[in-house]
Write a protein that binds this DNA or RNA. Sequence first.
DNA 1: GTGTTCCGCTACGTTAGCGTAGTGTTGAGT
DNA 2: ACTCAACACTACGCTAACGTAGCGGAACAC
Lengths: 202, 202
Amino acid sequence: MARPRSEEARRKALAAANDLIIERGVGNLTIEEVAARSGVAKTTIYRHWPERASLIIDTVRMTFEHVSTPDTGSLRGDLEAFFLGMVRADLSGKVGHIMPCLIDAASRDPEIEMLLDRISIERQQPILTMVERAQRRGELPPSLDTRVVIGTILGPIVFRKIVWRQPLDTSYVQSCLDVAITGLSALRPIPVVPVVPAVAAD
Amino acid sequence: MARPRSEEARRKALAAANDLIIERGVGNLTIEEVAARSGVAKTTIYRHWPERASLIIDTVRMTFEHVSTPDTGSLRGDLEAFFLGMVRADLSGKVGHIMPCLIDAASRDPEIEMLLDRISIERQQPILTMVERAQRRGELPPSLDTRVVIGTILGPIVFRKIVWRQPLDTSYVQSCLDVAITGLSALRPIPVVPVVPAVAAD
DNA sequence: GTGTTCCGCTACGTTAGCGTAGTGTTGAGT
DNA sequence: ACTCAACACTACGCTAACGTAGCGGAACAC
C-alpha cells in the first residue's frame, strides 16, 4: 500500500517502556510517559499497541531473550559457567530489575502470568539439559524430581537476588552449587557410584 | 483531653488496607478505596495516617507478626516442622500474597525497603537458631557461611512459592531439606571472608 | 453534665492519565 | 510523480484519586 509502520518508532517506544517499567513498575506504566520519553507520539503508540498489556508483553519479551547452555564436560563446570556468567549478569541488569514487578503483576493479570510461566520454563530448560547430561555421565542419580532439581539449584541464586536483593558474589554461588550438587547426588538411596571417571563397569 | 482515636476505625482501616494490598498491590493502594471498603471516612484515615506510606507500613507490619522456632531435637525435625507448619501456611496465605508486591515496592521506596530488610532478618532468625543448635550437636560443621545456610535452606522453598508461584507440597519440601542438610554437612569449612570483599560482584 | 475532640458525611478544586479526533507533514510503495 | 497511510502535534472530554474544608452528631475525659 503506502507506508509501513515505522520500525524506529517501535524501537524507541519499546526502549522507553523498558526503562519506565524498571523505574515505576509494570503496573504504573503510562502511555503518556512512554510517549514523552521516547519522542513517539501517543497516537502512534496506540496505533502500534491498542492495549497497554500488549506493549508490556512485547517489552518484557524483548528483555528476556537469549539463553545459552554451557557445556564444559562436568556438571559443576556447566553450572558455574551458567550462573557466574549469564545468570549473574542478567539478574544484576534489566532482568533482575523487571522480575519483581513482573511477579507481582502476574498475580493480578492472567496474561502476564502466562508470559511469566513461559519465561520460567524457558529459563529452567538450560539447567535441565545440563542435569540430564550429568545423569548420562553418572554424575547424578538417574531419576530425580525435576522440581527439586530446579528448586535446589536455581532457588538459592534467585532467592538471594530477587527476594533478598543481595549481590551474587562468586563465593556464594560456588558454595550453593556445592551444596546442591552434593545433596542431589545423595538424594536417592539408590546405589550410586561416586564421581569417578567411568572406567566402563561392564 | 476529650476523645481518643477510635481503635475500631484503625482496625477496620488496616484490615481493608490489607485486603486491598493483596488485590491491587502496594503501589495501587488508594485511600479512597480503603475508606469505601472499611466504612471508615476518608478524613479519618488521613487523620490516622497522614501519609499513604505509613498506612502501608502499619498494614504490612501487622501481617508479618509471629515467628516461632520449633525445637524437636534434630535439625531435620526442626526444619520440617518449621517449613511444613508455619512457613507453608504463611506463604500460602496473606504473607505469600503480599510478598511479591512488597519486593517490587522495595525496589522503588527506601522506606519499604528498610521494612522488608527488617522482616527478612526477623524471618531468617529461626533458621539460624536451629542451625546453631545443630552445630552444637555436631550435626553440621562448626563454621558455615550464614548467607549460604539461609540461601540453601530457605531459597528453594521461597523460590518455588514466590517466584514460580507453585504449591509447597510435602514431598518437595522434604526433598529440598534433604539436599540442603546433606550438602551443608559435606561443605568444607571455608576461610572467613573479609568484611570488605576484594572483588565486588554487582 | 459539660466540653472537647473525633467521627462520618458531603463537597470542593486539582491533577494525571485515559483514549479519541482533527490537522498538516512526510515518506515509502507504485 | 502520485498516492495513501503513518507520523507528530494539539486539543478535547472523561474519570479516578488526590488532599482539604466545613458540618452536625456522638463519645469519651473530666
